[in-house]
Every structure is written in structure tokens, then in C-alpha cells.
Nucleic acid binder design. Structure first.
Lengths: 232, 232
DNA sequence: ATACCCGCTTGATAAATATCAAGTGATGAC
DNA sequence: GTCATCACTTGATATTTATCAAGCGGGTAT
């Protein structure tokens, strides 16, 4: 492959299938920016002028209403965020802030839409990506409506274990209050939920998690790929 | 426009922009089927062999886990459902059943994917549709995580009022137990929630709803287009 | 080293929501 | 017309979750 701007971006599924020419066009107006931790990037309700690609760091997509706030999802590198708003030329539904120092490529939304019309490979990739995002949020909805907070936590831990090749001990990748918000509960409630999972052999010490009895935990959590597997 | 198979389908946004030739190809393997009320169409976990287009009637998309069941969304005509699974050649994340007598056009998924590659207009329409679906589910998630059941109900009533050009009285379009499931609460809780909204001037008699004091209800419900407007 | 901050925990209590059981009322079958 | 069915309602109670208020403890700045 010839040189390209932002090679990390080029190798993303979303951009891998397009022609070099169209990729170059798309990146002509794009720029890379580095942000410190805890910086607001986007406010919900604003116009989606840019498609964002997180190259390194971590970003929290959250939403507020009537004095309440919740984290809708966490974005980890390398991936895009708020593709749907860009495509529809609509307003952001979520706010975004960096969680740590982050490098982000910003691509003007109008260029994304223009190249979409020019490049069939890109168009296909956008559709596949959007369909995956859609399915992921459907799973979130099922998780919220069908499970209690304790069950959501148990399944979260099983998922993280899977991420580590089924390891029985691992480190939480989120601060606990952040995790509480993602799971749709308060930090106090999360604290108690961790204690309640001791009954199923889960030990938590700071950010370290040990699963002493995988069978017990699975029997309680009843994980299913139709909710918990983010790949399918 | 020349004659086309399933004119109701042809005029959908999703199919309006494609060439007559490709539309004909897409519909070659499609067939229309009529189902009685309360018939299971799809079970979650099955392979997405067909894209479904609801031409008349109503369909409930629901999901089950561990002895619990919840209605994720209701599909009204004319619209497609489970587009994302079709695109990704994946398994259905939701089950589907008819709520009333329904006519449904079923299009083989492989044809959808094939024509997608051939027809740029169709590809664009799929992307726009999927982006809309994605944003709609994000709104559902915000609704669930940021609001209590009472607040969800209040905003639901305001939305239905909007659907009727802001009318102060209208008829519920769902059975109450169905509505309870969509809103993520039990039928008993919904019954009490209706009574609680009397304090804000809402009167419910059977399926008839009267909003006596729109200001009061809005002050309580705090509707926002970033959650409650399904068009943007 | 000391003091402070901050995230987390814990306890007590309140609010929201679900469950179980019984009752009401409309609708439809016979 | 009577009975049965079914959705809905109502009441009593249990569970889940949130709120408020301290307290704990590891890290950091000075």
C-alpha cells in the first residue's frame, strides 16, 4: 500500500476498501488533533460537522437530561464515533469528552457524504459499520430492559474475562463510577453489587477482579451472544 | 413510473431511488404473505434469511431472556424491519410476531446484499435508513437510562399528542400491556402511572386519553427532540 | 512527613418498581 | 340472558435502586 495520511485510520475496516484516490480526497480536509484528559469535544444538540476517529486514548459518549447524566458508551481506539449523525447531516445525540489524553482525526462531514457517493467500497463499509453499531445498541437496550443491575454487572465481568481470553483475573478498564454509569446504576449501587457477587465467587480489590468460580458466575449471569457478544 | 411489483414497497424511501431494473431484480425472489394476528414470524437467534417489509397490519419486535420478555419496538406500515441483520448476514436479535392481521413482503437477504452492490441509489438509501434506525435506538437508550417510568409515560403521551397535530385528546394506539412492555414497566405499574399523571391533568378512560393541561404535563415531562423526536 | 483531595465504600433511609393475589368490567360464545 | 374470558385495575407487600450522609484510604502537593 502506498503512503497515506493517518495510516491508523486507513487500516480501519471503514476506510480499508476505498481507492487511494478517494481516501486522499477524504483526508484532504481532515486534521489530527491531540486533546488533554477530561476535555469536552462535542455537546449533544450541536451540528455534526465532523466525523471523529479516535486514534489513541479514550472517549466517553454521554448524555444529559434534567440534571441527570449517563454514559451511553465508551469509545476505544481505533474507531470512529458519531457516524450516524454525520451521514444524516443531523445533530449529535450524545456529548463527547476525552477520558485520557487522546489523538483524534476529524474529517469534515460533507466530505464523508461526498466520497460516500463516489466510492462504492466506502459505501459498503459504511453500511456494514452502521449495521454493527445498530445491533450493538439493540443489545444495550435488551441488557437494560431484561436484566437487573446485578445481572448486568455479572455479565459485564464475564465479557471482560472473554476479552482476556477467558482469564480468571483481570483489571477493570474503567473507573468504577464510569462503569456504574455505563451499566445504568449509581456508584453506591455498583459497590454493593460487587459485594453481592462475592456469593458467586467474585473478588474485587481496587481495579483487580478475580473470578473464583466461573461456573457459578455463569449460572447466575446467563450470558447470551444475543446480548453480550459485541462481535456478532 | 412504470408498473412495479408491490407498489407500496417501491414508494418507500428505501426503494424509491433505485433503478426500475434493479428493483425488478430485487423483487424477483420476493413474495407477499398474509398472516393472521398473533403469529410468530421470527425467533431471535435465527439466521436473517429475509428482509421483511410490513405493508399492512402491525408487528411486535420483542426479546426474551431468562423467563422475561420485553417489547423492543413496534413496527407500523409501511416500513422494513431487521435491515441490519440482513446487511450483516447475521442472526436476528429480536423475535417478531404479528399484532393484527398483517401483509408482509419478504425479500431474500442475499438479493438485498447483491443489489446493494449494484445500485448506488439503493446503497445510499440503505445507509440513510440504517443511520435513522441507529439514532432511534440511541434515543431509546437515553429514555431508559435518564428517565423514570412515569417520565417515560408522560413523554410518550406528549409524542402521541404530537402525532395527532398536538390534539389534546386521542386514542392509544397500543394495548396497555403492550405499551407497558415498550416503556419498560409492568402493566400494574403502568396503571398506577396513569393515575399519577392525573396530578398533571391527564385523564385516561379505556383507550381514550385527554390532556387537560398541556403546560403542566410538559413542565413535568420535559420533552426534548434529542430523545422524543423520532424524525431528526 | 503532613494534610488534603478524591474516589470509593458503608450505613440508614427513601423512592421506584415488581410481584402476588384478588377484584372489576367489558366482550363474546353459547 | 348467562357464563366465561381476558385485559385491566387495585391493594398489600417485597425487591430493587437511589439518595443522603459519613467514613475510609490511597495518592499527591507542599
Amino acid at each position: 500500500m502506498p503512503d497515506s495520511t493517518f495510516p491508523e485510520v486507513r487500516s480501519l475496516d471503514l476506510f480499508a476498501d476505498m481507492s487511494d484516490e478517494n481516501y486522499a480526497k477524504l483526508m484532504r480536509g481532515a486534521y489530527l488533533q491531540t486533546f488533554p484528559p477530561h476535555v469536552d469535544l462535542i455537546g449533544e444538540g450541536e451540528d455534526a460537522d465532523f466525523l471523529h476517529v479516535l486514534v489513541s486514548g479514550a472517549v466517553d459518549l454521554f448524555s444529559s437530561w434534567s440534571n441527570r447524566e449517563t454514559s451511553v458508551m465508551i469509545v476505544k481506539p481505533v474507531s470512529t464515533f458519531i457516524l450516524a449523525a454525520t451521514i444524516r447531516d443531523a445533530r449529535y445525540l450524545m456529548s463527547a469528552r476525552t477520558m485520557e489524553k487522546s489523538r483524534i482525526v476529524m474529517i469534515p462531514s460533507q466530505d464523508v457524504r461526498a466520497i460516500f457517493d463516489l466510492d462504492a467500497g466506502f459505501a459498503r463499509a459504511v453500511v456494514v459499520e452502521l449495521a454493527a453499531c445498530y445491533r450493538s445498541v439493540i443489545k444495550t437496550t435488551k441488557n437494560l430492559k431484561l436484566r437487573t443491575a446485578l445481572e448486568r454487572l455479572a455479565n459485564y465481568l464475564l465479557s471482560r474475562s472473554q476479552d482476556h481470553d477467558g482469564a480468571l483475573n483481570f483489571v477493570l478498564d474503567l473507573e468504577k463510577r464510569q462503569l456504574a454509569s455505563v451499566l445504568g446504576m449509581t456508584p453506591e449501587n455498583l459497590s454493593r453489587a460487587f459485594k453481592a457477587l462475592q456469593a458467586y465467587g467474585v473478588q474485587v480489590n481496587g481495579e483487580n477482579v478475580v473470578i473464583n468460580n466461573m461456573d457459578d458466575l455463569q449460572t447466575f449471569a446467563k450470558p447470551t451472544s444475543l446480548i453480550d457478544d459485541n462481535r456478532t
